[in-house]
Computed example of a mutant assay.
Amino acid sequence: MTQGIHGTVADGFEAVREEFATFVAGERPDYEGQLCAYVHGRKVVDLWAGDGCEADSLYGVFSSTKGAAHLVVALLIQDGTLEPDRKVTYYWPEFGAEGKAAVTLRELLSHRAGLVGLDAGFTRDELADDRAIAERLADQRPFWRPGTAFGYHALVIGALTGEVVRRATGRTLQEVYEERVRAPYGLDFHLGLPEELEPRFRSVQPMAPTPEQQAVLDSVPQGPHTLSSIAFNTHVPEPGELVDYANSRAVRASGPASAGGVASARGLAGMYAAAISELDERPPLLKPDTVAEVGQIHSTGYDLVARAHKSYGLGFQATADTWYPFLGAGAFGHSGAGGSQAFADPRAGLAYGYTRRRCAFPGGAAPENGRFVRVVHGAALA
């Protein structure tokens, strides 16, 4: 066992442990992180490092939460409960105000609705409450003509699609997720963390950017009412810090479906393994046609919010185009602002999850994921 590294890898995945150990050795002493992967439903990587970090430690995973939210939507589409090409107003009539009547569920899921935030912004209490977010957005005029462009609906997409789920099923997205995904597999990926699991939560810590990273941050246009500031709710008088969101008990308790999830790497990877593979003697949650549809690119090109090239599937990030071009076509998942990453590559049978305690820069999946994903994927193919 490499000093400071805990856990196991399957035969053929020794290089993953070596890569993880090399990275950890070069990090600051307070590094904490977990790495887990499945191949065809078999756990092949289960590693963690850092004082206080255990295999079942739980971390705020920010937008990796969107993967859980949209797995629920995928299941409901597969059931026939939701139809992606129906107008959102079929399920949620109030949504049609201010020029949004023609928006389809497919356009909403692929970040094409133009409803990235509110002119007036949200309060901190509202950001912990998906129902409140959805109610306020129903009366908001889109920031671009729906369907003509796309931009990341960072803090609101889970609330919007969650309201569609609630109207169609009579239950919250979080309740459907608990019943159909988390509980059957015992996954440590929670949309609403029970009080009794709080001792396992490791509070998210800030990290100062390097000069190179700060230059990237400084290059992003600033202003009180840019699309980016509205989408990330930084145009309000007291926006708070990124870490405040995950460290809020109110957020963890309610599990907002855009970014309020709490998970271990085991939980992240296990969810995607359940989605595409037989796991615990259960068939895959998603049928091949559904896997193909959610992984198919729906929006690609210039993201008006991120101001960069991005690609989205049906509610998920198109992981190969957005992050790791060596992955199989149709890989789907979602990263998180703190550095977490989680996805499935159906062609390789691979499910991947990574968490870390200190937030990464410049945002999204931590850079080290590129190293880990490449060696895990190579081992999986071998």
Score class of each variant (00 low, 15 high):
L76D: 06
D321A: 12
A97N: 07
I297G: 00
S277I: 06
A348Q: 11
A168N: 00
A37E: 07
Y324T: 03
A250K: 13
T210V: 01
L115A: 03
A265K: 01
A365K: 10
F20W: 10
Y245Q: 08
V376K: 06
A74E: 00
C359G: 12
E281F: 07
A101Q: 13
P211S: 10
G267S: 08
S110D: 00
R145S: 11
K87G: 09
A55L: 10
P146Q: 09
G370E: 12
H235M: 13
K43Q: 15
L187N: 04
F332G: 05
Q78L: 08
S219W: 06
G4L: 08
E18V: 14
H70N: 15
A308M: 07
P194F: 09
Q341F: 08
D30Y: 09
L381T: 11
G315L: 01
A259I: 00
A159I: 04
G349P: 11
R180K: 12
G60V: 05
E293A: 12
Q213Y: 05
I77W: 08
G315A: 03
Q3E: 15
H153G: 00
A231W: 03
R167P: 01
Q222F: 08
A318Q: 00
G370R: 13
A329I: 03
L76P: 06
G336C: 06
S264G: 11
G67Y: 04
L155K: 03
G301F: 06
D30I: 04
G41R: 03
A250L: 14
L82G: 10
L217W: 14
D139S: 11
I5N: 05
R167T: 04
A320K: 05
P142F: 04
A379E: 08
D218P: 06
E293P: 03
F232I: 15
A269S: 08
G121H: 12
Y31I: 14
A329M: 04
K287L: 14
V262G: 05
L279Q: 10
D244G: 15
G261A: 13
H309P: 02
W144C: 02
K287E: 15
H334T: 09
V88T: 03
Q140Y: 02
P239S: 08
A348D: 13
G255A: 04
F372R: 02
C36F: 08
F232V: 15
D51Y: 05
P93G: 02
R252M: 07
P224K: 07
A128D: 03
D46G: 10
R124L: 13
T234G: 09
R356M: 15
K87E: 13
P93D: 05
A379I: 11
T2I: 09
L381N: 14
A379M: 11
A149L: 03
Q317P: 00
V373I: 15
T81K: 05
F316Q: 01
R171P: 00
A154R: 00
Q222Y: 05
S219M: 05
L279H: 09
V291E: 09
